[in-house]
Design a protein around this nucleic acid. Structure first.
Lengths: 134, 134
DNA sequence: GCTTGACTTCGAGCGCGCTCGAAGTCGTAG
DNA sequence: CTACGACTTCGAGCGCGCTCGAAGTCAAGC
């Protein structure tokens, strides 16, 4: 199997993943994505493994993992199965950060909702409560 | 009351809020914070209203409201009570964004946890599942 | 009177994560 | 043979949110 027929062009991948072609190439040149297989023309052909990796990157990105850490993760992944424990550790540390952030976000969202309620009271004609003085 | 005695220096505010003195001045010069009252020496003296405003900014910042929007909000606030409805609208729009982000974050966290579990299975000696191939 | 140190202003610089555009190559359609 | 359009590389530029440092002022203590 010299060239799997499920290969996608960079444009197709961009449409599928929502990552721009510019960013896809950028990720590759910084080493976040391994060199993508090429057609004879030199054009990139993304296969299943690339798509799975991009999916993971999207998740890490969505949870605001900095590129630095994703790179670290990527380098471990390239070194193969012997780094599974290290990758797990990295991911777990990230999980903890995300959980903390989530909690903080929820708490803050709570006070934003309270402020909205106080605006509603003010708009209903009650005495402006002090939280509104600015 | 020419100078309320509860006034804090910029350093004290920095310690209290966790916002650096550099950033406090930066916020003031871009108009995110109204000109802070000064001692005769020209030094800033932060009072209750400033601290309350900074607290609100911290919350908006924690929920990742861009400075642009905070500025919009600040400008409305300066225009007084007639802008309460507009401020409410702005804040509510933000609330909706935060809620969406929170949901997305939770979903993504879920798949991260799954990946961690698959690492654990791999480390326990089972056949590496395909999610680990990179 | 002099030093110390906390403040002041101002403009430049930085780290992050893209984003863009110029210039070139390739393969197919007319 | 030409024109087109989708791709390629590469380096420069950008928007955000600070962050820093130079140079000056002021008040208090020795």
């Amino acid at each position: 199997m010299p060239e799997p027929s499920d290969a996608l062009t960079i444009r197709e991948v961009a449409e599928k993943t929502g990552i721009t072609t510019h960013t896809l190439r950028y990720y590759e040149r910084i080493g976040l994505v391994q060199p993508v297989p090429r057609a004879k023309s030199g054009h990139r052909r993304y296969g299943e493994p690339e798509l799975r990796w991009l999916d993971l990157l999207k998740k890490l990105h969505a949870t605001e993992m900095p590129i630095r850490k994703m790179l670290e993760y990527a380098r471990l992944a390239r070194r193969g199965e012997t780094t599974i424990a290290a990758r797990r550790a990295l991911l777990d540390a990230h999980r903890i950060e995300v959980e903390a952030k989530l909690e903080h976000l929820q708490a803050t969202l709570g006070t934003i909702r309270k402020k909205l309620a106080s605006y509603d009271r003010a708009l209903a004609g009650r005495a402006p409560d002090h939280a509104l003085s600015r």
